[in-house]
Nucleic acid binder design. Sequence first.
DNA 1: ATCTCCTTGCAAGACGTTTTGCATCCTTAC
DNA 2: GTAAGGATGCAAAACGTCTTGCAAGGAGAT
Lengths: 365, 365
Amino acid sequence: MILKSLLMPIDNAETEREGVAHITPNVLYSEVDLARVGMTEVAARAGVSVTTVSHVLSGRRPVAESTRTRVLQVIEQLGYQPDTLARGLRTRRTMTVGLLVPDLTNPFYPMVLRGLNDVLVPAGYHAIVCDTDGTREQELAFLREMATRRVDGMVIAPFQLTRKDLLSHAKAVPLVRLGDGPLDADLGDLVSSGGEDGMAQMVRYLLERGSRRVAYIGGPRHTGPSDRREAGFHRALAEAGRVAGDDLVIRGGFTRDAGREAAEVLLNRADRPDAIACANDLIAIGVLDAARKLDLSVPGDLAVTGYDDIDAASLVTPALTTVVNPAREVGRACGEALLRRLTADGAEPYREVVIANSIVRRDSA
Amino acid sequence: MILKSLLMPIDNAETEREGVAHITPNVLYSEVDLARVGMTEVAARAGVSVTTVSHVLSGRRPVAESTRTRVLQVIEQLGYQPDTLARGLRTRRTMTVGLLVPDLTNPFYPMVLRGLNDVLVPAGYHAIVCDTDGTREQELAFLREMATRRVDGMVIAPFQLTRKDLLSHAKAVPLVRLGDGPLDADLGDLVSSGGEDGMAQMVRYLLERGSRRVAYIGGPRHTGPSDRREAGFHRALAEAGRVAGDDLVIRGGFTRDAGREAAEVLLNRADRPDAIACANDLIAIGVLDAARKLDLSVPGDLAVTGYDDIDAASLVTPALTTVVNPAREVGRACGEALLRRLTADGAEPYREVVIANSIVRRDSA
DNA sequence: ATCTCCTTGCAAGACGTTTTGCATCCTTAC
DNA sequence: GTAAGGATGCAAAACGTCTTGCAAGGAGAT
C-alpha cells in the first residue's frame, strides 16, 4: 500500500473554478509592507549610516545606547527584515542545510526531520529536504543542487552513493551520514542506531525463543543500512554456532511489496524457515501479507520481526515485534553533530554517534 | 502511538566514539574542487569577460558558437557552478519555496511534499519544510523566517493563522493554501480535496447503511480543515431531514489520543451513537482503541469512518472505511498552482482547485 | 562605396549586506 | 593643559552574479 501512489497512474480528476481576476485590496498599503525596505532606508530614517545599523543588529561593535534604541525603533516601525541572501553572500553562510532521504513515505524519515528541526531551527538553520527515491541519479542531482545553493551542511541517508561521490562534497561542507553506513572518517560523522547490534539482538531473541531455521530478508547490498543489519544477522547466528546458507537470505527492496515477494519465495519451499528477520518494518508487513495468503499462523508457524518501529508496526495484526529505531532522537543527534561542526572554530574530530536501540516484543514473534 | 515521542521525555542514551582528529586526505586536491571557482576565474581562463560567460549560461544574448563551446569547456573542466545566492540577490528569485505543515508525523503531509517536489524540483525549485506543531507561535515564526529568506512562494496548511496574519505575506509572495480553508481570494489560491463534499458523502453512506445516531469527532474550530468537514457532516444530516444535537459533536485534536478520549465520552453515555464519523484517520484509529476497550464490536455495535486514507487506515483491524484524500495529487496541484504564479507575467486570476475524492469501503463501516 | 543594421563583446553599475580602516569626539590621567 | 586612549560613527570595499549602455566589426542593401 505504501507504494500505491507511486506505481499507479494518478488520474487527474480536478475541478477548477476561476474567480475574479483582481480583488481590490481591502487593507491599506502601508510602509509596513513586507520585505521591501533595506538597511539604507533604515539608516536614513534613523539619521545614521548603514554601518551603524549593521552594528546594532550584529553587536560586533558597541553602539551608543541612544542611537541604538533609535535605530531599533525605526526598524520596528518600518518592519525591516534583513535579507538572508545578501547576508549569506557576504558571510558565506546560508543558514540552510540539506537533508537527503531515500523515501519520505517511510514514516521513519519524517520523524528524523522533526528531530533535526528540533535542534537546527532554534539555531537559525532550516532544512531543504529532498526525496531521492533511492536512485543514484537523483541522489547525485540533489548533491549537486545543494552545492550550488551553498548549503552550510548536509545530513544524508545515502543509498546508492559511493565513497567517491561523497568525497568532494565532504570536503566542501560538513556532512553527517545517517544510518548504518560504513565507518569512514573522510565522509563526515556517522549517526546510527547500531543496526548491527540491533539485528543481532533480535536474532538472538528468535533463537532463544526456539526458532530453528531463521531466514533474513534485507535490502540490496551496499545500500543504506543493508550491510550492517545483515552483518548483525550473521553474527548472531555464528555466535550460536550456526551458519545461514544462501538460501535463507534474500535481498530485495525496502518496501512492503518487496517483502511480500521475498517471503513468498521462502515460504513456498519445502524446508521453509520458522522465523524471518526483516531489515525494516515495511518488509515485515509484506511478509505478514504473504503468510496470511498462505494461511500460515504468525507467530505459530512463522515468527516475523521488523526493524524501526514505525507507527504501523503496532497497528498491524499481529502487532510486529521489532527493533525500536528512535527516529526523532536520531534526527536530533544528526542536528547536534552538524551544529557542532558548523559552530566549531577549528577542525572537529570525527565522531560516530550510536543511539541506543531496543527490542519491543509484540505478537509477531 | 503517534505522539509517543512527543510526549515522553526522550532519554539520551548515546554512545560516542571519537576517532582520529584529522585524516590525511587520500584524494588529490584538484582544480575540480567544489564550489570555490567563480565566473571571473572561468572568464579569465576562457579569455573572455564575465559578461560573456553569463550570456553563455543564460542565453539572454547570442554568443558566437566558437566562444560558446570554449566557455562551456572551461566550465566543465573547472567544475564551475553558479552561486544561487549571488544570482538570487541580483535577480530577486531564490528558487526556494516554503512549505508549512502542522504535523509531519501525520503521513498525509510527507506525501504532499512528494507531490510538491514532483512538479517543483524539475522546475528548479526546492522546498524548505517547517513543522509547526499546529501552534500559532510557530506558524508566525515560520512565516517571518520565510520572509527574511525571500522565498519565491509558499504552500501553507494553516491551522491557527488568521486572515490578517496571512494578508501581508500574500501580498509579498504567491501563496497557496492547502486544505479545506475558507475561500478568500486575497489569501492566494486554494487547493483542497473538497472536504465538505467528502464528509457529506461519507455521512450519507452511513445513513444509507442504516445508522440512526451518527456522531462526529472533529478538530478544534477554525483550524485547518475542521470547519468545512464539519459543515459536510451537518449538510448530509440536514438533507436527510435530521439534525445533530450538540451532544453528538465533539471537537478535540487531530490525533489518535484525542480521538480515543472523545470516543470514550460519547460511548459512555446512555444513548450512545451507533456511528462515528471522524475528521481524520488518526482520530478514527483512536475511536477504534476506545471501542476495543469498551468491548464494542466494530462495525456491529458501532460504525467508524475516517478521512485521508493514510497507510495506517488499511493496516488497523478492522480496516478503516475512509475518504481517500489523494495527498500526492494534492501536493502536485499545489506545486502547479504555485508554478503558475511564479512563471506568470502578469497577475493570474484567483483559482480554487478541488481534487476529486472518493470513499473506500473497508471493514469499519 | 556608403549607410544601416545585426552580431558580438566589454565595462561598469546594481542587488543588500558585512567588514575594515580611519576619523572624530569625549574622557581620564598625568 | 595636554596626551593617551576609549567610545562612536562613517566611507568604501568586498561577496558573485545579472543587466544595461555602448562600441567595434562585419554583412547586406542601395
